[in-house]
Amino acid sequence: MSLTTVDPSGGLTRDNLRSLLAAVCAGTGLDPAHAELIKFTNNAVFRLAADPVVVRIAGSTAARERVDTVVRVACWLERHRFPAVRLLAGVEQPIRLDGQVITLWERVQDNGPRPDGAQLAGLLRRLHRLPPPPGGLPPWSPMDEVRRRLAEPEELSAEDHAFLLRECDEVEASLAGLRFVLPPGVIHGDAFLGNLIAGRRGPVLCDFDSTSVGPREWDLTPVAVGRLRLDYPGDDHAPLARRYGLDVMGWEGFPVLRRLRELKLVTSVLPILRSNPAVRAQWEHRMRTYKAGDLTTRWQPYQ
């Protein structure tokens, strides 16, 4: 589905996000009044007030290039009755608006109990048993994603840009030497508790931007890194490891996957550093400690 609206060439600022939201709602019969911007990092995500719908606007070239796969994965999971978010029925998706790419989702009432690591592990075990969708999935290519972000940064110094490009080269070389212990297959690609929604009938999985075919160890890494690096309450890694049957932190290749995960956490907001000033202080903190090789200082989630 294609629509024409305001020219968004000035970047995804909060003002033109509202214009994009108004245009897509006008074209689909939805009401944008009092919509809440609940996330603005890799993607901008609005929760509509008048309709049980979530609007997701891809926030970078890399994110826009993945949306067709996101739609295909969502349809495939629905066919398998997998507990995941569902695309809004009756609308041809994705929607393209003057170079921007938008998807519409059924809103999940997130009033259930907080999901934990064991529940995420159960969903991952179930996901990892599924056959790939018709037409397959892209191969796991984490460095391609990071390099695309580095190709369109906002307000990144030349020194930091050069450092991050060197990191890409070093991490890629280290990845090539890993010997994984689990068989490769379908992976979520960004499996942490922030991508579970606490539905009334149990948690449901969301965010399929990184879904691909790759090493299952990668799906166990985000929660492990979250325990070591991010200031989350409690420990979700231990129950995840017990339920899944592998403690990825005890595997010899984990330091490489940790470095990759932290590199992705540092670079994730580069395309919107100027557009969303609220992330700047936390990004600078992450960049400073990552660049110094500091593995102990805690990071906070982007707001």
Rank of each mutant, 00 (worst) to 15 (best):
D207Q: 04
Q300F: 08
L205E: 00
P142Q: 13
A49T: 10
S212G: 11
P113A: 14
T13S: 15
V54S: 05
T13Q: 03
E262L: 15
G189D: 10
P255E: 07
R258T: 08
R79S: 14
G293W: 07
I38F: 05
E92V: 13
A35V: 06
V256R: 13
Q303G: 13
E78D: 14
Q300I: 05
T289Q: 13
A49K: 11
K291C: 07
A121I: 02
N43W: 08
E78T: 12
I187R: 00
V101F: 08
E167M: 11
V54Y: 03
L260W: 02
R216G: 00
L193H: 01
N43T: 10
W283E: 00
R86E: 11
V108P: 02
V101L: 12
E36Y: 07
A84L: 09
P215C: 08
W105F: 13
V24R: 01
I272C: 08
P94G: 10
L270S: 02
E152D: 13
G189I: 06
L104T: 00
A58T: 07
P113C: 13
R72S: 15
D219K: 01
D31P: 05
A198E: 05
R274A: 14
L88R: 14
T4S: 15
T13V: 08
G185E: 00
D15G: 06
A158L: 13
L175H: 02
P255M: 09
L178Q: 07
C25D: 01
P131F: 11
P32E: 04
D247A: 12
L270F: 05
T5E: 11
P132A: 15
P277V: 03
D190Q: 05
V108F: 08
V73G: 12
P142C: 12
G202D: 10
E152S: 10
R125A: 09
L150M: 07
R280N: 00
D236W: 00
A241R: 01
P277D: 04
G189P: 02
F254W: 08
D7G: 07
K291Y: 06
E92Q: 14
V213R: 00
H34L: 08
E172N: 12
G245K: 14
P131D: 14
D116L: 07
R166M: 09
H128E: 02
E172W: 04
K39S: 13
A50I: 05
A238E: 14
N111F: 07
C206T: 15
D219T: 05
R47L: 15
P233N: 03
